[in-house]
Write a protein that binds this DNA or RNA. Structure first.
Lengths: 142, 142
DNA sequence: ATAATTGCAAAAGCTTTGCATGGCC
DNA sequence: GGCCATGCAAAGCTTTTGCAATTAT
């Protein structure tokens, strides 16, 4: 009962379809947590045949290299992973280390427009990342 | 010949003035690099009496806790430190890992204005960070 | 005087790496 | 069949921690 989306994505990207990869991708797509490698490994342990953490890292690295996931940095040491590849922003609470996505077409326009016009001497702009820091009103039971 | 600015800042913040602290602060203020603990330690080794890396970390942690420095996250593993505490943004090149400051009053206004009005259900906005990714036209000899 | 900081070394935490085994195309 | 991915264990790198000795106030 492997998620077909995961298999489709792997195939589309020309990656070999293995049970470990489909499991990791499936979990990452379904957890809305921006999970860390450790989170993913833990979740896999409960719901799928065990995948060693080293393998999880290798798989995540392959996914990042192939544009399936992106890395998200926080105040913490762990790398978090994000399966949403469309332009969006992150809401972040440093206390709980919780991340949520912010999709905001207006903000996209404002910033794209600004950086298209903006000339910074000695620097060629390629992209931008915006993190909004604050508090979630209902922190989920951690 | 210790920088008086460093001593003044420490005194203002009510921190004990030690040679190690003034040295670390002096270096961080004068290197425009957004240096890592390792960078600072290395520079100290050449220009000041040696300060062990563990002590550098403790000092930097104290500075961050007292609002003298802020941490800057990059694609790399190391934490970088920034002595500029006014609102600004970062230009960043992931390839060279170089960071530069971007001061931009227009952008400040646009974003402050936007986030003052913007209501995000379930989230209280406190602050925001913006990183501009791209290339520096003249990379300094690394 | 005394409370905080330094120095040293060990440990911790996350991630990467190497290499033999196994599995996908 | 051949090449790529997995599994396991060890290593790597940055940062943190503990504690005794030292120093600033």
């Amino acid at each position: 009962m492997v998620n077909k989306t995961a298999v489709r994505i792997l195939t589309e990207k020309g990656l070999r379809v293995t049970p470990q990869r489909t499991a990791v991708l499936d979990v990452t797509l379904n957890l809305n947590n921006h999970p860390s490698a450790e989170n993913i490994s833990e979740y896999l342990r409960l719901n799928y045949p065990h995948v060693p953490i080293g393998t999880v890292y290798k798989i995540l690295e392959a996914f990042v290299a192939n544009g399936i996931l992106s890395r998200v940095k926080t105040e913490n040491r762990q790398i978090r992973y994000d399966p949403v590849m469309e332009k969006h922003y992150h809401l972040y609470n440093p206390d709980s280390d919780q991340i949520a996505d912010l999709f905001d077409a207006d903000l996209n326009k404002i910033l794209e427009n600004y950086f298209q016009k903006k000339i910074i001497p000695g620097f060629t702009i390629k992209d931008f990342y915006l993190q909004v820091v604050g508090n979630f009103s209902e922190e989920p039971a951690s």
